[in-house]
Simulated assay, not measured.
Amino acid sequence: MTNETVRNPYYQGPKTDHYNGTRFFNPGGIRPAGFRDLLKWQFGDRGTKWPSRIDSPFPNSKPESRLDAANLRVTMIGHASLLIQTAGLNILTDPVWSNRVSPFAFAGPKRFNPPGIAFDDLPPIDLVLVTHNHYDHLDVATLKKLQARHKAPIITPLGNDTIIRKAIPDAAITVTDWGDATRFMDRITIHTEPCHHWSARGSRDRRMALWAAFVIETPHGSIYHIGDTGFHEGINYRAAAEKHGGFRLAILPIGAYEPRWFMQGQHQNPDEAVQGMKLCNAAHAVGHHWGTFRLTNEPWDEPRAALARALSHHGVEVERFRAMHPGEWLDIPAL
């Protein structure tokens, strides 16, 4: 099909260096594998079976309501859902409290451990960041609950607002493109930055909503949050360091990377995450996107073990890059 015969249901706008008038793309990057490769993977070796339940050593975290402005604390909820407390604000990333990440409540990848923070134990939420529209990152059911309880504004890249507004018409959404900067409550600035990924909610909307990373700029150091990304030869990491000058904390995906022939363009592995930490000049990093939903072939705890090997190989102290369990929280030292 040509661009003229396909309609984008989420976004219409002018062509850019990462939007062709119908679909978004990664400049100079790798396109996601097609349906034939998906079938090859699905009917081939599916990897190691996970346990029926994976208990976190840090269950039932109950975060403080507010922290002092200079403090930076990160609490893992599960997968790519984290609570970031900084600048006196409470920020959620890609919030998912549902039991499955799927268009269906009865099928699809299920949760292997409960959220590290019970929904009712959340502090007041000031801001929600949604990086892209895959079901393990954009969970409409959770966003509805957050709207009812907290009415927190949402920042998300182009096109994802259409999906959210269909379910939550009164949501306060700021829609951003790569390179945009959004000032929030005169305390922080949210920069929307490139990452190497893709998007889809079904089989006919591939790459029709934008994906992004976020930089949370605060007076006490910046935070680089990536929901999903391929390594992309480190291009985006280098650009982030050049633009922002380094980070107090990088929040990086370290899971969902096997088999490499299928996943390498869209999901980095732990070794690439460590390389990315160094390239973006992050003082500390936390790893997410592992051990909660089985999406790919690696054993549930292999990302943590692979991260330890990568840190040793690249000469990075283990305390600087932690693979976080649900309910685990970390106070990040000042720069």
Results as ranks from 00 to 15, higher is better:
308 A>V: 04
327 G>D: 05
314 H>K: 03
331 D>G: 01
303 P>R: 03
318 V>D: 14
311 L>Y: 06
298 E>D: 08
314 H>W: 13
329 W>N: 15
299 P>V: 09
322 R>S: 11
300 W>S: 10
331 D>S: 05
324 M>W: 01
304 R>A: 14
309 R>V: 11
326 P>G: 06
326 P>R: 00
330 L>C: 11
300 W>D: 08
321 F>G: 02
316 V>I: 05
317 E>F: 08
330 L>E: 11
308 A>Q: 09
328 E>I: 00
325 H>P: 04
296 T>N: 13
326 P>M: 03
314 H>S: 07
331 D>V: 00
331 D>R: 03
324 M>E: 03
331 D>M: 05
327 G>E: 02
304 R>M: 14
318 V>N: 13
302 E>M: 12
312 S>P: 06
305 A>D: 09
303 P>L: 06
299 P>C: 08
328 E>A: 00
330 L>S: 11
328 E>Y: 00
309 R>S: 13
304 R>L: 12
315 G>T: 01
329 W>C: 14
314 H>D: 06
322 R>Q: 15
325 H>W: 13
301 D>Y: 10
328 E>L: 00
310 A>L: 05
301 D>M: 13
332 I>Y: 02
327 G>H: 03
330 L>D: 07
312 S>K: 15
296 T>E: 15
315 G>H: 13
324 M>N: 00
318 V>S: 15
325 H>R: 10
306 A>R: 12
317 E>H: 15
